[in-house]
Design a protein around this nucleic acid. Structure first.
Length: 894
RNA sequence: GGGCUUAUAGCUCAGUUGGUUAGAGCGUCACGUUGACAUCGUGAAGGUCAGAGGUUCGAACCCUCUUAAGCCCACCA
C-alpha cells in the first residue's frame, strides 16, 4: 500500500487520523480485494488460501429484480450473506457466493410500460414487440449496473466472475432444456383452464399474483325469467349470460325436487339452457341458496362444470368486454353490461332485491385492475404426476418430503409449517404469461402440428408460441443454472461447478418469497438433479422504517443505502442491519441507529489507533509470557477465549445479532473501558494488546469488513485480513499463542471482584457528591481476600477511584462517620469524603434493598415444598445468596 | 373463515429447553474530560414483562381466554 507523508515504522502507520473516515478506505480496499481474486474460491485454492479438498460453502445470492436499484432490504440480504461468506472463507471453507440479477418479467415490463406511457404517451402495442423489448433491455442495463455498483459498495465479497442474469444466454439455454425435458417427462402440458386474467396487462396471473381489495358490492337477487321457478343471487349479473346450470345444496329441501331438471329460458333476451345440479359447497344461507353456474368465468364454476359435464359458454373477452352474439350487450364493458342487465331485470319485474354487501375484489398485483377469470390455453407444470426419477413421487410429494424429513431445514423453524401448508395445497403451476419480456417458450406450431424442442424446427411455416414463461420458472432453476447446468450435467452426472458447489449450503432470503420462490427451487432442483438445492433456508424479516411501516417509494419513507453509506460508512450500515434483530422477524432501521454504529466503528478505530501508535508492533513474533501475566492479563485473555467460542456458536446458529452484541460488549466495555485503562497503569503489554486486537479484527471482519481491513493494513500486515484464518476456539493459530496451553489460570472471578470494588467506590463517590478531583484515602478490610486485593492496589488507585492512599488489612475496627461499602465481604472505608446526609440516605437505601432480598429469599427457603422439590443446586444457590446478604446487612448495621 | 407473528425501560430490541435483584444500545439527568476516541468517560434515574385465569415449589418464558398491531393463505355466488 502506498503511504504518503505518513510516519511509517516497519510498515506500521503511526500517524492515523483521529477519526475513521470510511471514504478514505472503502472503495480502495474493495478494489484491492477484487483484484486479488480471493472472492473466487478457485483462485483461493490455486493460491493456497484454501485447501483443495476443503468443505464447500456456497450461497447463491437471491437475484434482485432489475426493476429498481437496491433498497435496504437487499442491503440486509447482502450484509447477512457476506457475513456468512466471509466467516466461512476465514474458516477455511471453499467458499462461493454467487451474484446475479432477475429479469422479473411482468414487474419489469410494467415499469417500462409505465415509463413509456409517461414519457412518450405510448403503449407497448404502439411500439410493437421488437421496439418495446429494446426499450426494456435499455432500461434493464441501467438498473443492472446500478445494482452491481451498490452491491460492491456494501462490501459484498461476491464472486463476480460467475455473475449471472436470469435472462442471459446460459440461462436461456438452461430454461429451454428444462422445458423440453419436463415436456418429455409429461409434466409440462397444455390445457384450457380458468386463469386469472388481467385485461390491462393482457396477461395471466398466478394465484399468488392476485391481490384482493375489500369493497362494497351490489348483490342482485332475481329470477332468470318468469318461467324459471326460483331466484338466484349474484354480484355479477353480466356473467349470467354464460350460465349453463344452477347449483343448489343437495340437502336443501326447497330445491330438491328440481335437481336434474333442465330449463330452457330467455334471460334478458338471451336464450339459456340451465340444468339444476347439486353441489355440497353451496351455502344454503347465502342469498336464495341457489347459485347460477358460469363455467367460463369462475374457478369454482369451472370445477362444477367439469364434475357435471356442463357446456361452457364464454361471455367476456380478453379486453374485459362482452363477446359477440350477445345482442345489445356485445362490446359493452362488464360494468356497463351489468347496469343494463339490472335495468332490464327491473323492467321485467324479475329483480327481487338489490342490497349492499362486503366483497373481496380480485385485482392485479401490479396494476390493481380487477381480474377477469377467463378460460384460456396455457402451459402448466403438473405437480401431481408421479415421476420415475423421483422414486414414483410427484414434484409436490418430493418437495414435501425433503422438508418433512429435515433434509432441508428452515430457520426459524416455524416456516417449515408455513412451507408445508402451502405445498400441500399446491395446484398445477401455470407457467405461460402473455407478456413480451421474458423467456420464450420453446414451442412452435404449424397448423395443427406442435413442436417442442431446444432449437428452432427445420422447415417453413413454424410459428413460435407468443407467450413467455413465468419469471419463477427461470429463477426456480437459479441454484443450478448458475453453476453450469445443463452443460455440466451429462448423462445425469454432475461435473465442474455443479460437483463442487451444489447443493448449496444456505438460501438466505426474505420470508415473503418463501412460497413463491423457495418452493419452486426445490421442485426444479429435484427434477433436474434429483437433489435438494440447499440444505438450509434462512429467512429474514422485512426492513421497516422507524414507525414500523414498510419502506416504499410512494411513501417516501425509504432509506437509500448509498446515501447512508456515504454519510456513515458501509460498516455502520451493515451493523445496523445485523444487530438488533432476530431471524424471521421484521426490523426497524433509521438514521439514529446507523449513527450509533458509526460511533462504534470509530471506537474500534481508536482502540486500534491507540495500540498502533503507542506500542511497538512485532507481528511475527507474538509470545505471551504467562508467568508474568497480571490478573488483568489473564482475565482479558480468558474473556477473549470465551467471546471467540460464543461468537462462533452464535454465527453457526444464525444468531448474528447475538454474536455482534457479544463482540460489542467485549470490545467496548471489557477491552477498551477496562483493559486499555489497566494497560496504561500496568505498563508494557504490547504483545497482549496486539494479540487481542488482531483477534478482535478477525472476529469483527465478517460484520464490518472495511474498517477491520483498513486497520489490519495500517498495522503493516501484508496479506488481506479477508483471507486470514479464523482462530479455532481455545487455540489461536493466527497469532501463535494459546491461553490454556500456556498455563493461564482461570481468574475471571477474581478480576470481577476487583472490578466490583472499583465500581462501588466510583459509585459511592458520585452519590456522596465527592468532587471528581478530590483525592481520598481508603481503608480496606479484605479478610481472606487480603492478598488478592493487595496485589491489585495499582488498579484500585488508578482506575478513576480518586484514591491516593490505600491501606489494606485483614480486618479492623469500625470507622465511624466515613463512607462505608461492602463488596462480597470486603469492607471499604473512604476517609474524609463523607456527606453525612447523602451517605445516610445511601446506606438506608442499601439496607432496605438487602432486607427486601433477604425476606424474599427467606420465605422461599422456609417453603418446604421448594426445598423438597427444587433441585439441590438451586436451593444451595439460594442459601448462599441469603448468607452473603445477611453478612452484608450485619456489617452495614454496625 | 384458517394460520402465523408481535406486545418487555421514553425509543429500538435481547432474554434458546421455567430458577436473574428482568438486560443492552439510544435517549434523559448529574458529573467529568488525565494525549486513543466528545463519533469520549464515570455514575444515576427509568419496567405490575398487554390483560385475566390456570399449571408449577417457582412463570417474561408452558396452557386457556381476552385485547391491540401486523402478516400470510383460502374464499365470499
Amino acid at each position: 500500500m502506498k503511504k504518503e507523508n505518513k510516519k511509517i515504522s516497519n510498515g506500521v502507520n503511526k500517524d492515523l487520523p483521529k477519526a475513521y473516515n470510511p471514504q478514505d478506505y472503502e472503495d480502495k480496499i474493495y478494489g484491492e480485494w477484487e483484484k486479488s481474486g480471493y472472492f473466487n474460491p478457485d483462485i483461493c485454492v490455486r493460491k493456497g488460501i484454501c485447501e483443495k479438498n476443503a468443505k464447500p460453502f456456497t450461497i447463491i445470492f437471491p437475484p434482485p429484480n432489475i426493476t429498481d436499484k437496491l433498497h435496504l432490504g437487499h442491503g440486509s440480504n447482502l450484509a447477512i450473506e457476506d457475513l456468512l461468506t466471509r466467516y466461512h472463507r476465514m474458516k477455511g471453507y471453499r467458499t462461493l457466493w454467487l451474484p446475479g440479477t432477475d429479469h422479473a418479467a411482468i414487474a419489469t415490463q410494467n415499469v417500462v410500460e409505465r415509463k413509456i406511457l409517461k414519457e412518450e404517451g405510448k403503449t407497448r402495442h404502439d411500439l410493437g414487440r421488437a421496439k418495446f423489448l429494446k426499450k426494456v433491455w435499455d432500461f434493464a442495463k441501467v438498473t443492472q449496473v446500478t445494482i452491481l455498483k451498490q452491491s460492491r459498495k456494501m462490501g459484498a465479497s461476491l464472486d463476480w466472475s460467475r455473475q449471472a442474469f436470469t435472462l442471459d444466454e446460459p440461462r436461456k439455454k438452461a430454461v429451454r432444456k428444462m422445458f423440453v425435458e419436463m415436456y418429455k417427462e409429461g409434466i409440462i402440458y397444455r390445457g384450457e383452464r380458468i386463469v386469472n386474467w388481467c385485461p390491462r396487462c393482457h396477461s395471466t396471473l398466478a394465484d399468488d399474483e392476485v391481490n384482493y381489495k375489500e369493497q362494497k358490492a351490489k348483490l342482485y337477487t332475481f329470477k332468470y325469467s318468469r318461467d324459471f321457478p326460483f331466484a338466484i343471487a349474484t354480484t355479477r349479473p353480466e356473467t349470467k349470460l354464460g350460465d349453463t346450470a344452477v347449483a343448489v345444496n343437495p340437502k336443501d329441501k326447497r330445491y330438491k325436487k328440481y335437481i336434474g331438471k333442465i330449463f330452457a329460458i330467455d334471460f334478458v333476451g338471451v336464450p339459456l339452457k340451465l340444468k339444476i345440479i347439486a353441489d355440497r359447497n353451496v351455502d344454503m344461507k347465502f342469498g336464495t341458496g341457489a347459485v347460477g353456474v358460469t363455467p367460463a368465468h369462475s374457478m369454482v364454476d369451472w370445477q362444477m362444470a367439469e364434475a357435471n359435464r356442463l357446456p361452457i359458454v364464454k361471455v367476456i373477452n380478453e379486453e374485459g368486454k362482452i363477446k359477440n352474439n350477445f345482442g345489445k350487450y356485445s362490446g359493452k364493458g362488464v360494468l356497463a353490461a351489468r347496469e343494463i342487465i339490472a335495468e332490464e331485470l327491473k323492467k321485467q319485474k324479475l329483480l327481487e332485491k338489490e342490497e349492499e354487501m362486503d366483497n373481496n375484489l380480485s385485482i392485479c398485483y401490479r396494476c390493481g385492475t380487477p381480474i377477469e377469470p377467463l378460460p384460456s390455453k396455457q402451459w402448466f407444470v403438473s405437480v401431481d404426476k408421479k415421476l420415475k426419477r423421483l422414486g414414483d413421487k410427484s414434484l409436490k410429494e418430493k418437495a414435501i418430503e425433503v422438508a418433512k424429513t429435515g433434509k432441508i431445514k428452515f430457520i426459524p423453524e416455524r416456516f417449515t409449517k408455513k412451507y408445508l401448508d402451502w405445498m400441500e395445497n399446491l395446484h398445477d403451476w401455470c407457467i405461460s404469461r402473455q407478456i413480451w419480456f421474458g423467456h420464450e417458450i420453446p414451442v412452435w406450431y404449424k397448423d395443427k402440428e406442435i413442436y417442442v424442442g431446444e432449437e428452432i424446427p427445420k422447415g417453413k411455416g413454424w410459428v413460435q408460441d407468443e407467450d413467455t414463461l413465468d419469471t419463477w420458472f427461470s429463477s426456480g432453476m437459479w441454484t443450478f443454472s448458475t453453476l453450469g447446468w445443463p452443460d455440466d450435467f451429462k448423462n445425469r452426472k454432475k461435473s465442474g461447478d455443479l460437483t463442487n458447489y451444489h447443493p448449496t449450503q444456505v438460501l438466505e432470503t426474505g420470508y415473503e418469497i418463501l412460497t413463491l420462490w423457495v418452493s419452486r427451487m426445490i421442485m426444479m432442483s429435484e427434477f433436474a438433479l434429483e437433489e435438494i438445492p440447499f440444505e438450509k433456508v434462512y429467512l429474514h424479516g422485512m426492513v421497516l422504517d422507524k414507525q414500523g411501516k414498510k419502506m416504499s417509494k410512494s411513501k417516501g419513507n425509504g432509506i437509500d443505502p448509498i446515501d447512508v453509506i456515504n454519510k456513515y460508512g458501509t460498516d455502520a450500515v451493515r451493523l445496523s442491519l445485523l444487530i438488533g434483530n432476530t431471524p424471521g422477524n421484521d426490523t426497524r432501521v433509521f438514521e439514529e441507529k446507523i449513527a450509533g454504529f458509526r460511533n462504534f466503528t470509530n471506537k474500534l478505530w481508536n482502540i486500534s489507533r491507540y495500540i498502533i501508535t503507542n506500542y511497538e508492533l512485532s507481528i511475527t513474533n507474538l509470545k505471551i509470557d504467562y508467568k508474568n501475566c497480571t490478573l488483568a492479563d489473564n482475565w482479558i485473555l480468558e474473556e477473549l477465549d470465551e467471546v471467540r467460542f460464543l461468537v462462533d456458536k452464535k454465527i453457526n446458529s444464525y444468531e448474528f445479532s447475538a454474536a455482534g452484541e457479544i463482540l460489542r460488549d467485549f470490545t467496548w466495555d471489557k477491552f477498551a473501558d477496562w483493559y486499555l485503562e489497566i494497560a496504561k497503569i500496568e505498563g508494557d503489554k504490547s504483545n497482549i494488546l496486539i494479540y487481542v486486537l488482531k483477534n478482535l479484527l478477525i472476529l469483527w471482519h465478517p460484520f464490518m469488513p472495511f474498517v477491520t481491513e483498513a486497520i489490519w493494513q495500517e498495522m503493516g500486515n501484508s496479506e488481506f485480513l479477508m483471507v486470514e484464518k479464523w482462530s479455532k476456539v481455545g487455540s489461536s493459530i493466527s497469532v501463535g499463542v494459546d491461553v490454556r496451553d500456556g498455563g493461564g489460570v482461570l481468574r475471571k472471578d477474581e478480576m470481577n471482584l476487583i472490578k466490583d470494588i472499583i465500581i462501588s467506590i466510583r459509585n459511592a463517590r458520585a452519590e456522596n457528591k465527592v468532587e471528581p478531583g478530590k483525592k481520598v484515602k481508603a481503608i480496606i478490610y479484605a479478610g481472606r481476600l487480603k492478598n488478592l486485593v493487595e496485589s491489585q492496589v495499582d488498579l484500585i488507585k488508578g482506575l478513576r477511584t480518586g484514591i491516593s492512599e490505600l491501606e489494606i488489612k485483614e480486618n479492623g475496627p469500625k470507622i465511624k462517620n466515613e463512607i462505608y461499602l461492602t463488596v462480597a465481604g470486603v469492607e471499604i472505608y473512604l476517609i474524609g469524603a463523607i456527606d453525612r446526609e447523602k451517605e445516610k440516605e445511601r446506606i438506608k437505601k442499601e439496607i432496605a434493598n438487602l432486607k427486601k432480598m433477604i425476606s424474599l429469599t427467606e420465605k422461599k427457603l422456609e417453603n418446604k415444598e421448594f426445598t423438597a422439590k427444587a433441585p439441590a443446586e438451586i436451593v444451595k444457590k439460594e442459601e448462599e445468596k441469603l448468607k452473603s446478604w445477611q453478612e452484608a446487612l450485619e456489617k452495614l448495621k454496625k
